[in-house]
């Protein structure tokens, strides 16, 4: 069964998130040998601090057995910031109705072979189908997903072959990585479910969601920082002016100089520094 944990409810699911980060450490840091940062047995990167949504698979005992992470392509995401080599210097896709999915993995140690509900195959398909369903329910039409060739084969074998790819397959640490496109359509979701024999609602009901939450007597999590829509200026005019001056003085090439001057004049035009600087 599947639960979605995001910035809205993550304070109630610290246990699930810790298990998920530990699973990612074993899979990406261990088995697949990706160049990821593992600390205290948990794999956490800068994008985990941006309130992504996690689609998480749990077994009947309530343990995390699979997970994937989603981010909007309108804001910072992996293809725009760290996987740019896949795109060979090309800018990434940006659309309100395309999300990026990354860090898809399943726990091959906790799950067995075969086709039962407790198998690797079932858990993989359930996570794929549920994450596509979650996207579709949010008005999303397509996913761009960063995967390795192993995952690419798994997708093809599970009747969920990508309809296309963007960029190229490039080495990412010890393994090649690529970006695939998947449509979030009923047709694709039904094919995956039929392939694995998944029936009924994949998502947890209210009672199960509560049972999976941290116990009430657990230490209270740090209070959620309420996003402040109104912020005090953090940079003064003179600091900005000084920054512009440094950029101009530090320019090594004609292009750098031109870019620095363009920035300074934009700031001056916006009234953020005085034109005299």
């Amino acid at each position: 069964m599947i639960i979605v944990v995001d910035g809205v409810n993550r304070d109630r699911y610290t246990r699930l998130l810790d298990e998920m980060f530990a699973l990612r450490a074993r899979v990406f840091g261990g088995r697949l040998g990706w160049e990821v940062d593992v600390r205290d047995g948990k794999e956490i990167d800068q994008f985990d601090h941006l309130d992504p949504a996690y689609v998480i698979g749990v077994n009947d005992a309530g343990r995390v057995v699979s997970c994937v992470r989603a981010l909007q392509t309108t804001g910072p995401h992996m293809l725009s910031d760290v996987f740019s080599s896949i795109l060979a210097g090309e800018p990434p896709l940006r659309s309100p109705t395309i999300w990026e999915s990354t860090r898809f993995c399943v726990d091959t140690e906790a799950l067995d072979r075969g086709k039962s509900r407790n198998s690797v195959g079932y858990a993989t398909c359930e996570l794929m189908a549920a994450s596509l369903q979650y996207c579709k329910d949010s008005g999303i039409t397509d996913i761009v997903t960063v995967i390795d060739p192993v995952m690419n084969r798994v997708l093809k074998r599970s009747d969920c072959a990508p309809y296309d790819y963007v960029g190229e397959t490039v080495p990412m640490g010890k393994v090649p990585a690529m970006a695939a496109l998947l449509d979030c359509t009923d047709e694709r979701i039904e094919k995956i479910k039929a392939f694995a024999g998944i029936e009924g609602d994949m998502f947890v009901d209210e009672a199960t969601a509560q049972a999976l939450a941290d116990p009430a007597d657990a230490p209270a999590p740090a209070p959620i920082e309420v996003p402040q829509l109104v912020k005090e200026p953090v940079v003064t005019q003179s600091q900005l002016a000084e920054y512009c001056m440094d950029q101009v003085l530090d320019a090594h090439t004609a292009e750098e100089l031109e870019a620095a001057q363009r920035l300074a004049s934009a700031l001056a035009q916006a009234g953020m520094i005085h034109a005299g600087h």
């Binding site: 995001d6 910035g7 809205v8 309130d51 949504a53 989603a70 949010s138």
Partner: peptide, 12 residues
């Protein structure tokens, strides 16, 4: 409505 949605990627 505002404080919650700012932490979500999906429509709330």
């Amino acid at each position: 409505v505002l404080t919650t949605a700012a932490r979500s990627i999906a429509p709330v």
